[in-house]
Design a protein around this nucleic acid. Structure first.
Length: 427
RNA sequence: GUGGCCAUAGCUCAACGGCAGAGCGCCUCCCUGUGGAGGAGGAUGUUGUGGGUUCAAAUCCCAUUGGCCACCCCA
């Protein structure tokens, strides 16, 4: 039998990883709610023809497609935009627009995995459907900003904001009117940060654009200014609480996807050089192209996996929460723990204490191996970073007390059980 | 999808055709009511998996699984 392994690009999340992930997703969920984004969840499997309806042919290969037992052609969701477009089309008439929706689900891509790129990953989107105006874009931005703050990433963070309108107008002015050509420029430009201006220049000239023209595009882009619409978005965003200096107009920001029609945005952190932690923009034609009604849309997607990585890397989490959610370990003092006198006379008292702690909403454990001495039990607590040990021995039982030890401070005192509650609960 | 690097003890790695090792961790004891330190002792493996070459394979070759990197792509 082969060694047990996870599938390529698929991961287990052990307790310590789950604590980070739960911490992050908790912040997402509560903040979405505060900003009026209503939760939506759609199936992980969709008809293949739904999944492949629109996108370019390359992505076909990265979508998991197979047959179910009823010979239906189906596939795993590749993103959340497509299922949502399907949902909007299927429920047109029932939905009250503008519709603010949040969605957090695992998505699947059959691409070659690398660090930060997995075949199964958490996708986390907010979008507003059915509103063209700049306030909608600003709302999305301000929700994202709130989350960034709550995650403690706001220090080196900034929004890079560009506009497809600026780009396309500029290209049209230079007689680059062919739609395909315009897309190509957008796609190449997207790599600017990563590969530098020279490489983009080369890339574009390989695609048949003249050097002079490309240079002109760069020059015009760097000198361009935000559209009225973009200015309005930024003004609203500032009124909604985003510091002005966090909103950086970046005319060369493009983003790869070709369906964006207005604002495009990326959120970048300075500290770990990891690129963007969120991205999105306005895509007014996409929903219609999926067979829905003409529905303007704006939104963005958080790089959940990346954000978890960043938080771990910056150590933002390590200090914030202990290694376990358990707050107290009930420990039996050694002398009375012998296999012969099982159950130990300490047990009725110890288990009563354990129940009391749990009834008081203090996450608690008792060491399960009855043969373990007190040193071993303390070591367990120490390694799991359980903050308190509740030690029970014959003296405690006789006096109706417990000895509570603060593992961090290495101090202890003997008190009544009732006095334990405030000590653990509020420290 | 294309190209490259890698897989050896729980972890980090060494050995690069000739008996599979070190550091850290782990276990036991010094310590029968006190965890991060110290001292003494101990255990640890079908070298990712399957085949091939060879007197002999962790080492060379092929396949396969998984990890990493660049490209591709990134809704």
């Amino acid at each position: 039998m082969e060694k047990a392994q996870t599938l390529k690009g698929f991961r287990d999340f052990g307790p310590s990883q789950m604590r980070v992930r739960n911490f992050v997703s908790q912040i997402f969920r509560t903040t979405f709610e505060i900003f009026g984004f209503e939760p939506l969840e759609t199936p992980s499997l969709e008809y293949a023809k739904t999944l492949l309806a629109k996108y370019s042919t390359d992505t076909d290969k990265e979508t998991y497609i197979f047959k179910d037992l009823g010979e239906r052609d189906i596939g795993l969701i590749y993103d959340l935009t497509v299922p949502t477009a399907r949902y909007l089309a299927e429920n047109s008439g029932k939905i009250r627009y503008p519709f603010r929706r949040s969605q957090m689900q695992r998505c699947y891509r059959a691409e070659k995995p690398q660090k930060g790129r997995y075949r199964e990953f958490m996708q986390c989107d907010i979008d507003i459907f059915g509103e063209k105006g700049p306030l909608a874009d600003a709302e999305v931005l301000s929700c994202a900003w709130e989350i960034v703050k709550k995650l403690g990433l706001d220090g080196g963070f900034s929004f890079k904001i560009g506009s497809r309108e600026v780009l396309y107008n500029l290209l049209s002015d230079l007689d680059v009117t062919d739609c395909e050509k315009q897309m190509q420029v957008a796609r190449s430009l997207d790599k600017l940060d990563k590969i530098g201006q020279d490489a983009v220049l080369e890339d574009l000239s390989k695609n048949g654009l003249q050097i002079g023209l490309i240079k002109q595009i760069f020059a015009n882009l760097t000198n361009s200014s935000p559209t009225e619409n973009l200015k309005a978005i930024m003004d609203y965003a500032i009124l909604l609480g985003i510091p002005k200096e966090k909103l950086v107009f970046s005319p060369t920001l493009s983003r790869g996807a070709d369906y964006y029609t207005g604002m495009v945005v990326e959120g970048v952190v300075a500290e770990p050089k990891i690129g963007s932690v969120l991205g999105g923009g306005r895509y007014d034609n996409l929903i219609k192209s999926f067979g829905g009604q003409d529905t303007p849309a704006t939104g963005l997607s958080f790089g959940f996996e990346r954000i978890c990585d960043v938080i771990l890397e910056l150590g933002l989490f390590a200090n914030a929460l202990p290694n376990t959610t358990t707050r107290a370990l009930v420990i039996l003092a050694s002398p009375f723990i012998s296999p012969q006198s099982s159950p130990s006379p300490l047990f009725p008292y110890a288990l009563k204490a354990l129940s009391y702690l749990r009834k008081s909403d203090i996450p608690s454990e008792i060491y399960l191996n009855q043969k373990a001495d007190i040193a071993k039990q303390l070591k367990y607590a120490s390694e799991k970073q359980i903050p308190y040990a509740v030690i029970i021995g014959p003296d405690e039982v006789a006096n109706n007390t417990v000895t509570i030890k603060d593992l961090g401070k290495r101090s202890q005192k003997t008190i009544s059980l009732k006095e334990v509650f405030p000590l653990i609960k509020f420290n």
